[in-house]
Structure formats: C-alpha cells, structure tokens
Simulated scan of single mutants.
Amino acid sequence: MDERSMDPQDTEQIDDETIAEWTAPFEDWYYYPDHVIQPEPNIKGYEDVFKTDIPTVYQIPGDETWYMSFVGFNGDGYQSFVAESDDLVNWSNPRLAFGFGPEGAFDHGGVTLGAYLYESYDIDAPRRMKRHDGSFWSLYGAYPRQGEYETRPGSEGLAKSNDGITWERAKDDPILSVHQDDCGEWEQSCIYQPWLLEHDGHYYDFYNAANGSVEKTGLATSEDLRSWDRYEDNPVVDTGPEGSFNEQFSSDPKVYWDEDHWVMFFFGVGRDGAHIMLAFSRNLHNWTVNPDPIYEAGGHPHDLDERFAHKTSLVYEPDEGIYYLFYNAVGNRGRGIGLLTSEPLPGVEYPQR
C-alpha cells in the first residue's frame, strides 16, 4: 500500500523518537551572511517597495534558471514580483509578476503568489511547475483594500500563467473567504497564505487563518482547482500550549513528501518571536508538531532575524547535494529574504557569534 494514501481517520500521534529522527536532517544549517533579496530591492518602476516577504523558489519546464517570486510592500499593499538566479544566491532582474486587482475586487489591496502547482512534491524533487489545461497555476493570498498591511478580511484566489513569470486572476471570486457557509469559527477574522499540493488525483490547500489575534492552519480540498471544500476537522495544526513557541500562531504551511512521511514547514509565534518549526503526518490530515523550532528568531549571527524567522521556501540542489531554505528574516536590517543552507557554500565567509 502507498503510505501516502493512508486513512485520514488514523489519528495515531507520531512518537517523540520518530519526530526527533525526522527532524534531525533539517537542523544546524548555515546562515548566509546577508539578505539575498533586500528589503528595498530597487525594482524598476517600483522603487517605493521597502519590505520584501514570502519567498517561493521554482523552475519552469525546459529552463534551468531558478526563479523566486516574492512579495513587495510599498505602503499601499502587497504585490508579487519575480527575480532569477543561476546559483540560488545572487538574484537579479526583479519585475512585476502579479499586481493589485481592480478597485472593489477581493484582491485590490494585495496579491501574494507562492502556492504553485508542481510536478512533484518530493522533498528532493525540483520545484518545477506543472502545466494543467495548458497553463501554470497558483493559489494566492488576497486583500481587499489598499493603504494598510494585510487588510482584513483576507481571502484566497486562483491565478494562472502562460510563461510562469506573469500571472493573472483565473477566477473572479475567491476560492476561500470568510463569507462562505463552511467557514469555521477558527478562521472567521481573516484567511491568509495558501500552499497547493496535488496528490493521488486530488488538490490540497493548506492555509493559515485567524480568529482575532490567533492563527492556525487548516485544509481544503478540490477536484478542479476552482471549487474547494474545507476539511471537517479543521484546523489540522492548532496552536500550542501556553509558553510554547507556537502559542499564538501556527502559520504559513509548506508540505513535502520525505521518503515515507509528510513534513510541514510552518512558523510558530510565541516566546516573543516567530520561529521556523516542523510538523509531520502519514496521511496529510493528522499532524504531530515538533514543539522545538529548528530555527528560532534571533538565531542569525548578524541579527537579520532578531524579530521574526518565518515564511519558508525549501529547494534541493542535486548537483551540489545541498538544501536551500529561504525565509523571511526580519531584524536590524528590515524585512527581507534570508537563506539557510544544509552545507556551507564555497567562497562564503560565514558569520560567527
């Protein structure tokens, strides 16, 4: 039997020893000295962007270039941009990928790409986009009004692209919103960032949402990318107990298949920071959280992430045998895109504490 298709009613928790074994390969990585995308990335025509966020690295079929979509905030709201690289460290040619929606639309205040349809979700597979019905596809976070940061109530939309670079709305109403009949109490204030996964002929949307100031992670499923049904036992990743690293948030899930189990990278908020954490599952529905972060806020020796270490994008470079973990690093140099690698990169002078 394919272990990826195990019964969602199997609610057995994963034991501590197994959690420690599955976590170990992602610990003790190397902090790149600086942001790889600066808070002020100097994008032609968008020089007013002063915060960058939500990195997602991918490749396009037939193209060996690496691409990174990221969000830029200019005081009015989020827009999504894309840069390119041939070494996963030096990024250039940033340009608009997906801009504000029209006035009055659910995405007029901001669009956050990053939930792409991939050919494979294996943890060592290339993040190569997959065509479906002739197009590339992404779910995205959306905000209704400009002039603020993540204006509530956020929702999620569906976008498509012909080339994997420039995107457009594929559906004129949200795929998930707080106004839908199956919206749960835990998500009634705001819906945030999605993660799209295709498995066994079904589409999965892992997403974080808020009730008041508390964020948790839920799941919705679809057969066609356009119509979505929430999982009846949401949230699938709850917040942790008082004093934990995810006491207030369990957010921004990114899910991959790792040999015989699923691993979710997410961020927890607790203990005065945002931290990169892991949860594990055998069936995509029942998750066991490792309560100890793999990377805590303030871990970077240059304090790039002294406030927040969160919102990850994981890529494996097979020629080097190195994992690259991009993340939103918020600290003494503003809000930009940081990098951790599983091995030290040649020619890089690493900071020491």
Score class of each variant (00 low, 15 high):
residue 10 D to I: 11
residue 236 V to M: 08
residue 269 V to G: 09
residue 272 D to N: 12
residue 17 E to N: 14
residue 59 Q to P: 09
residue 198 E to R: 11
residue 219 L to P: 14
residue 204 Y to F: 14
residue 101 G to W: 06
residue 290 N to Q: 04
residue 85 S to W: 04
residue 214 V to Y: 03
residue 221 T to C: 07
residue 258 D to R: 03
residue 121 Y to V: 10
residue 32 Y to R: 01
residue 50 F to R: 00
residue 165 I to R: 04
residue 137 W to Q: 11
residue 39 P to Q: 09
residue 282 R to E: 00
residue 171 K to Q: 15
residue 211 N to G: 09
residue 53 D to S: 02
residue 220 A to C: 12
residue 144 P to W: 00
residue 230 R to S: 06
residue 105 A to R: 04
residue 181 D to E: 15
residue 103 E to Y: 00
residue 311 K to W: 04
residue 94 P to M: 12
residue 149 Y to T: 08
residue 197 L to A: 12
residue 10 D to C: 06
residue 80 S to M: 11
residue 284 L to P: 03
residue 131 R to I: 07
residue 121 Y to G: 06
residue 33 P to N: 02
residue 301 P to N: 02
residue 190 C to S: 14
residue 253 P to H: 01
residue 129 M to K: 11
residue 213 S to H: 01
residue 38 Q to H: 15
residue 7 D to W: 06
residue 26 F to L: 02
residue 76 D to W: 02
residue 317 E to G: 07
residue 62 G to E: 12
residue 208 N to F: 14
residue 258 D to E: 07
residue 188 Q to P: 00
residue 226 R to G: 01
residue 259 E to I: 08
residue 327 Y to D: 01
residue 150 E to Q: 07
residue 261 H to M: 04
residue 6 M to N: 10
residue 88 L to S: 13
residue 129 M to C: 05
residue 290 N to P: 08
residue 123 I to W: 06
residue 308 F to K: 15
residue 124 D to A: 01
residue 281 S to G: 00
residue 9 Q to A: 14
residue 312 T to H: 09
residue 66 W to D: 13
residue 270 G to E: 05
residue 13 Q to A: 05
